[in-house]
């Protein structure tokens, strides 16, 4: 069973025919070549597949592609404008918040969702926002520092 859906990905209009049992992550990665979004566990535990759906962070492995008809999806590819990095991405680079990098796209999208609503989050709010994103390399400390620096770039301290 197939459906035609129309939605935006990183502000670009997309029209595509999908299977009713197809996941959003598979449409993003396999059909639209947006491979920045990663699949880790496939069960909503690790957060590597996090993207924004109408501005809210969600696990794209637990959303059906048919459900995003008429909605706006934002992936990690939509953060930079290909000339310069989003300040959140730049903060991750500057603070050494990346090691292997597999969790990074999901981590960035969870943090982006937070900062879009709250540009001065507390450390507790940052930890809450990334509570669904597992990182096995960094121990999270540098990530939390990076997010708080991106939130308040004028401040030198986390």
């Amino acid at each position: 069973m197939q459906r035609k859906i129309a939605f935006t990905v990183n502000q670009q209009q997309v029209e595509i025919v999908v299977d009713t049992f197809e996941r959003l992550i598979d449409v993003l990665r396999e059909r639209l070549d947006l491979t920045g979004t990663k699949e880790g566990c496939g069960g909503g535990e690790c957060g590597a597949c996090t993207v924004l759906l109408d501005g809210e962070s969600i696990n794209s492995c637990l959303v059906l592609a048919v459900e995003v008809d008429g909605k706006a999806v934002r992936t990690v590819e939509g953060l930079s404008n290909y000339l310069e990095l989003d300040k959140l991405q730049q903060a991750f680079v500057n603070e050494g918040a990346i090691q292997c990098g597999f969790c990074t796209p999901g981590m960035l999208m969870s943090a982006r969702a937070l900062l879009d609503k709250n540009n001065e989050p507390t450390v507790a709010e940052i930890r809450e926002a990334i509570s669904g994103n597992l990182c096995r390399c960094t121990g999270y400390e540098r990530i939390v520092v990076a997010v708080s620096k991106a939130a308040r770039p004028a401040s030198a301290k986390a």
Partner: peptide
């Protein structure tokens, strides 16, 4: 329940 992303859904 779950995580922030889970609770959005």
């Amino acid at each position: 329940v779950g995580s922030w992303q889970i609770r959005n859904r």
